[in-house]
Amino acid sequence: MRDDRHRWTPYDGAWSPYEVGGIAITPVTPERQILISAPAVLSRHPGAIGWPDIATGDSYAISLRRDRVLLVNGPDMAEGWDDEIGQAVSDVTDAYSVFDLTGPKALELLKHGTEIGLQQPSRSAARMLFGLGVFLYRHGAEDRFRLHVLRAQGQTAWQMLTGQAGRL
């Protein structure tokens, strides 16, 4: 039985934007994130974003797997198994924390966390970064990277990203 409360920086999920030379890290709160799994789901979402694709606009689909996409700010959908279309639908809005990494040093920061480069494309936005599972792509600009990380690992991701950004 250990009381380790003082060993861990308190976490409340409300991070203030962090900025340091050449990079800004900002929490983002999408209104809705929906997971859709189905056979050939990618052909129904032909523009689904992989790496290092640039998502544009507010609403878009991210390619995660051969048979799975994440719809960001898409329409509200009934959860569960949709027998008509043949797809599994789950609301994951609260399951992922989302951060934007912007600036000329953002890519260098990502290179601290994994073997990644704009010349190494991938059909999937899902990868490991600093040992954490994330969805990583660009959003709206060449040097603006967006990542989704599981909510319970949001604090770890935040501490890692801001800590490493401060050392660039």
Binding site: R65, E115, S124, R127
Partner: peptide, 16 residues
């Protein structure tokens, strides 16, 4: 090692 996922392409072995 770099392992090639048939869907995602080459990735660090720690993802496998």
């Amino acid at each position: 090692q770099l392992f090639p996922c048939p869907f995602c392409g080459p990735r660090d072995e720690r993802e496998f």
